[in-house]
Nucleic acid binder design. Structure first.
Ligand SMILES: NC(=O)c1ccc[n+]([C@@H]2O[C@H](COP(=O)([O-])OP(=O)(O)OC[C@H]3O[C@@H](n4cnc5c(N)ncnc54)[C@H](O)[C@@H]3O)[C@@H](O)[C@H]2O)c1
Ligand SMILES: NC(=O)c1ccc[n+]([C@@H]2O[C@H](COP(=O)([O-])OP(=O)(O)OC[C@H]3O[C@@H](n4cnc5c(N)ncnc54)[C@H](O)[C@@H]3O)[C@@H](O)[C@H]2O)c1
Lengths: 229, 229
DNA sequence: CTGGCTTTGTGAACGCGTGCACGAGTGCCT
DNA sequence: AGGCACTCGTGCACGCGTTCACAAAGCCAG
């Protein structure tokens, strides 16, 4: 626990944009572009140019005034800051529809997140192979996490089982969880969790559609009234 | 400028939380709870109680001081505000790994987003059935959108094809898009889009893991892995 | 009916993220 | 060498979202 001075903290909003810049920079690099301005990068990312510059400034002053940013170097710096200089193996809990799609998706491994294993409680699924990975029983979770040095777990179980899955992941030693189940997870302090909820996304779109299409007649009922669904 | 054509606008942050409250309230209702306090709801949602009250206040004053909120009535109000009083059929573009998982997922229909159709360019996939829905050719998109009154489209194609899919969706008449491809979509003004990018989520987790494990200069004793690109 | 208890609804303070504006550095051209 | 065009880095102001704190409002017991 070396008291290394707490490094400059990067705002959450910036952290969530860095991966986008990273991908775009990678694409630009592949196309032979070796220098890029904040203006151009902003256009590609669909954001404000000043925001791009401010975001990148958190990494340090890696731009050249009058010119722009060297693509390759910037890629390296972002990767370093995001901890992408080495792989982060992930373990998937739940080998259903979604778990299957995730395991069969090559994009993870390419981006530095190889599937170290996928587990399930259903004996009918254990032993089958999905996306080149054999499904193992959830009791093997601790062993997988430890031998493969897994820090990140992905929950793709039904909502009912999500908390159980989270508990098992934490107990096995996982410290970050990506949760696809529509459930608010209860985890110990220090465990990082992120939730991806498709129903929520659709409902947000629904809100805007509803708003667009007539915006609702007047407010119904000025006062509280008992109305059963 | 035009007068306030817009009635009370609900902040984006609130809109994104309402679906969570809605789900929790539904669960509580199923368990026989007919009244709930902001404190309790906040606990279930993992947020601050004042935030819950402020969020709900955008819907109107539907609480009873000293008591709390009537669950059934609150559910009704949130559903009305989110436009969930009727179904919103969705069309899925791309019948691959992910499209298949989405089509096979019953949760959508249950929550008011039935799959009106799924389309693909691959003739080998056209005609097959996924999750009870027959895959149709993408050229049928306009017809599906119009006959089924579809407003929401879901993009589950590779990144390369995502912009094309978006263009086709918009041309067909869709006004909201949920995009799973890791691409920044370019759409006309007025079209609502939301993006779900798993790689971004994982990279955000990676950032925190990297930070946790000592920060600069990775603590893991792996080899010199300084590949840029 | 009154007093005490509970919980809502919201004004106000605060903090964070965004976008503008501009000084400061860099490279190129004359 | 000097001037010019360009782009970064950032101070600053603004707006949104979060949180606290409390008066208003409703319920209930006695
Ligand atoms: N499939 C989708 O497109 C989709 C979309 C949105 C959300 N989701 C969410 O993702 C989750 C999974 O969806 P799905 O369609 O894959 O469901 P699914 O029913 O197809 O698969 C769930 C899997 O989890 C396994 N499981 C159950 N309990 C378990 C436990 N305690 N530990 C380990 N494994 C367990 C089951 O055996 C099953 O194989 C759900 O929460 C769902 O709401 C899925
Ligand atoms: N599968 C996953 O778990 C996963 C995870 C994260 C992100 N994604 C993203 O989701 C998208 C789809 O992933 P996938 O694994 O299903 O890919 P996939 O290759 O399995 O499926 C893509 C499908 O889209 C179809 N397609 C191609 N071009 C099309 C076009 N112009 N119009 C209509 N359909 C077209 C293909 O025929 C194919 O069936 C990708 O962008 C991927 O990055 C997938």
């Amino acid at each position: 626990m070396a008291p290394e001075r707490t490094r400059r903290r990067i705002p959450d909003a910036t952290v969530s944009r860095l991966p986008v810049y990273l991908r775009l920079l990678g694409e630009q690099g592949d196309e032979g572009v070796d220098s890029i301005s904040s203006e151009r990068l902003a256009e590609l990312a669909g954001v404000n140019a000043a925001k791009v510059r401010k975001d990148l400034s958190y990494l340090g002053s890696y731009g050249t005034r009058g010119v722009g940013y060297e693509v390759a170097y910037l890629v390296y710096q972002i990767r370093r800051e995001l901890g992408l200089t080495h792989d982060w193996p992930v373990v998937i809990v739940g080998a259903g529809n979604l778990g299957q799609a995730l395991a069969g998706y090559g994009g993870f491994g390419e981006r530095g997140f190889p599937v170290a294993g996928i587990v399930d409680v259903d004996d009918n699924k254990v032993g089958t192979v999905m996306g080149g990975v054999r499904v193992r029983h959830i009791d093997d979770l601790p062993q997988i996490v430890q031998t493969k040095r897994v820090n990140i777990g992905v929950i793709a179980t039904p909502g009912m089982a999500a908390q159980d899955a989270a508990d098992r992941l934490v107990k096995a030693g996982v410290t970050s969880i990506l949760n696809f189940a529509p459930v608010v997870l209860n985890v110990p302090h220090g465990i990082e969790t992120r939730k991806v909820d498709l129903a929520v996304e659709l409902q947000i779109l629904s809100y805007h559609e509803q708003r667009r299409s007539g915006g609702v007649g007047g407010a119904v009922g000025s006062g509280p009234r008992s109305a059963t669904a």
